[in-house]
Simulated scan of single mutants.
Amino acid sequence: MAAQQSQSIQTLLEAEKEASKVVQQARQYRVQRLKDARSEAAKEIEEYKKAKEQEFKAFEASHAGNTQTAQLAVDKETEVKRREISESYKQNKDQVVQKLLDRVVLVKPELHRNLKKAA
């Protein structure tokens, strides 16, 4: 009976060792699956990031032409306004100088209003 008990104990110990091996393998498998899942998620994130960057670059390129077109329109409008101002200056400069000279040269001397009251 003692031999049978020791054999049973031996069988239980072997079963326990086998069970711990199975548990260890399961833990290693779980850790490996987690690593794989993380690496797959990182790849998916990277692919999504690249796709969004390409989409943004396409959007930027399609709207960059609009910016250049708007800039050209503003430049043309500015040039037209500058020419109008130059023409106006050329046409009116003689008249403005004459008005200024008339005001400076034609002085009408008169008494100050406070002096008029005192006198």
Rank of each mutant, 00 (worst) to 15 (best):
A2Y: 08
A2N: 12
A2L: 14
A3V: 13
Q4D: 13
S8W: 00
I9C: 03
T11I: 01
T11R: 10
L12S: 02
L13T: 07
L13V: 11
L13R: 13
E16D: 09
A19R: 12
A19Y: 07
S20W: 09
K21G: 01
V22L: 04
Q24M: 07
A26Q: 10
R30G: 06
V31K: 09
K35S: 05
D36H: 05
S39G: 00
E40N: 10
E40G: 03
K43H: 10
K43F: 00
I45Y: 07
E47R: 13
A51R: 14
E53R: 00
E55H: 03
F59T: 00
H63L: 03
H63C: 05
G65Q: 08
Q68E: 08
T69D: 13
T69N: 15
A70T: 07
A70W: 01
Q71C: 04
Q71W: 00
L72K: 07
L72R: 09
A73Q: 15
T78E: 13
I85G: 03
E87L: 12
Y89N: 05
Y89V: 02
K90Q: 14
K90R: 14
Q91M: 04
N92P: 00
V97H: 00
K108G: 04
E110R: 01
L111G: 02
L111T: 01
R113A: 11
K117P: 00
K117L: 14
A118G: 08
A119P: 01
